[in-house]
């Protein structure tokens, strides 16, 4: 009888994995960039077109890089959380305006409020590509030595800010 139990054994094994699979999200792809230094970049700064934001600008600080665009509707959902976070002054937020434009970005920030200490403008999206951006909004947390510590794809919720982002910020300070 033992060899006839083999099909059942295989099925049980598959069923266990399927069960685990129910509680996983196949869409969520962890970024291979976590634990690595941020890619090098040098982009024009919004509203100060002569100056640039580079990958070295914020060395020595713990900072949040938030990828946004005026055409991105989910960014609007996230925006109030960022305003709230900025008003608490616990961490510096830098914006990466992704595949958008100087004027539209400025208008959007003028209309909804500007939580960013600085905004780098990435019109052709190449720097975004180096950051592995694929679903705007995206948020990165970068430590003092310029290493990416955390990444969130899609809009941040207030609980994620409270429970994930801020404790990490504290520990990196």
């Amino acid at each position: 009888m033992r060899k006839y139990l083999l099909p059942l054994a295989v099925f049980v094994l598959v069923a266990i994995f399927l069960w685990r699979g129910l509680f996983l999200n196949p869409q969520e792809v962890p970024s291979p960039l976590i634990g690595k230094s941020i890619p090098e970049f040098s982009l024009p700064k919004l509203q100060k077109e002569n100056s640039v934001v580079t990958s070295e600008t914020f060395l020595g600080k713990v900072w949040v890089l938030n990828v946004f665009a005026s055409w991105c509707t989910p960014c609007l959902d996230e925006h109030p959380m960022l305003m709230e976070l900025a008003s608490q002054n616990r961490v510096m937020i830098v914006g990466l305006n992704y595949k958008d434009g100087f004027q539209s970005a400025a208008d959007w920030l003028g209309k909804h409020g500007n939580p960013y200490s600085a905004v780098a403008v990435d019109i052709d999206g190449l720097v975004g590509m180096d950051f592995g951006v694929y679903g705007v909004p995206e948020t990165f947390l970068i430590d003092k030595s310029g290493v990416i510590r955390y990444k969130k794809i899609g809009p941040l919720s207030s609980t994620e800010i409270q429970d994930e982002l801020l404790p990490l910020v504290e520990s990196l300070q």
């Binding site: 869409q27 665009a69 055409w71 991105c72 509707t73 989910p74 595949k99 679903g135 705007v136 899609g154």
Partner: peptide, 18 residues
């Protein structure tokens, strides 16, 4: 539904970039 809509808006933004 929301996430689908979100993906969709991503794709809309493409038109001018082709």
């Amino acid at each position: 539904f929301l996430s689908t809509a979100w993906l969709f808006f991503l794709s809309l933004s493409s038109i001018s970039n082709a």
